[in-house]
Structure formats: structure tokens, C-alpha cells
Amino acid sequence: MIAANVMTKEVITLGPDSTMLEALRIIKGKEVRQIPVIDRAGKVEGVITPRKLFKGILPPYVVEGMLEDVKFAPELPEFVENIKRLAKKGVEDVLEKDFVAVTPETSTMEVATLFFNPAKHTEAILVLGPDKKLLGIISPWDVFRRILEHYNGL
């Protein structure tokens, strides 16, 4: 089985000139794991990830691992200001360029192992054609549902 069989073809994307406000609206309204940012030629420039968004609003001493946990603080300081600041940014300033991508021919097993790679800790994998054109997106559940098809007991 290959990536092309499990991927979702309709992907919500953003253009390079979009603002983070648009990205936040998408996240608020829909179930998305990552939002790919596509340039005019259709090439993937990067993705908007939850990790990047958290980094944008939580203080560095929390997200950079300076504190192991913050159990002792019942609530973190309010970050409304930080969200406001994040919303004003362009997606180009926030996007993650180091995203995980495969070709349509990549085996689903390899896709599954990529989800387990602790160095990548990604929540979605992009499927790219030649010229880095976006063909689809795969979530861990897509892969797992594919594996479940081999089991008749459900």
C-alpha cells in the first residue's frame, strides 16, 4: 500500500500573503492538523503547525524547556496580548519550513514510521508530487484506518 491510497486530497491551504488571523480562523472552525502554505506556483513553502502557534503565544521559558512543568502555577499569565500580536503576523513569518513530506509512492509502513520518529514529532505528513506540488495530506489515523482494513473483527 502506498501514500497515494491513504492521503486526503482536499487540503485546506493558505497563500503566502495570508495573515495569521486567517490561519487562526481556520483552526477555530475546522479540524485541521497542519495548514500547508502554498506559493503562487503551487509549491509548498511550509506548514502552520500547533507547535509553532504555541511557541507564538506561550512564553519561551515554558516552550523552550527552561521549566520542566508548570503544575505549581494554577493558571499561566493571560496571553491575549500575545494572540493579538500573533494574529497580526503574516503566515510567512510563522510557518514551519522543516516539515515532513513523502512522495505518493512512499509505502504506508514508511509513513507510519515517520509518525513515530521522535526527532520529527509531526502531527501530519504532506504528500508532494514533482516540483514540491501538494497532492494530499496524511494524518496518523489515515494510516491506522488503512491497517484496520486487514482486520475483520470490527
Partner: peptide
């Protein structure tokens, strides 16, 4: 290294 992150958290809380 251990106490300064707490300082950041406290001063953030106190604005």
C-alpha cells in the same frame, strides 16, 4: 538556571 525561569513566570503574572 533553575530559579530564573520562575522569575519570568512571577513577573509575567505580576505584569
Amino acid at each position: 538556571l533553575l530559579t530564573v525561569p520562575i522569575t519570568f513566570l512571577l513577573t509575567d503574572e505580576l505584569e
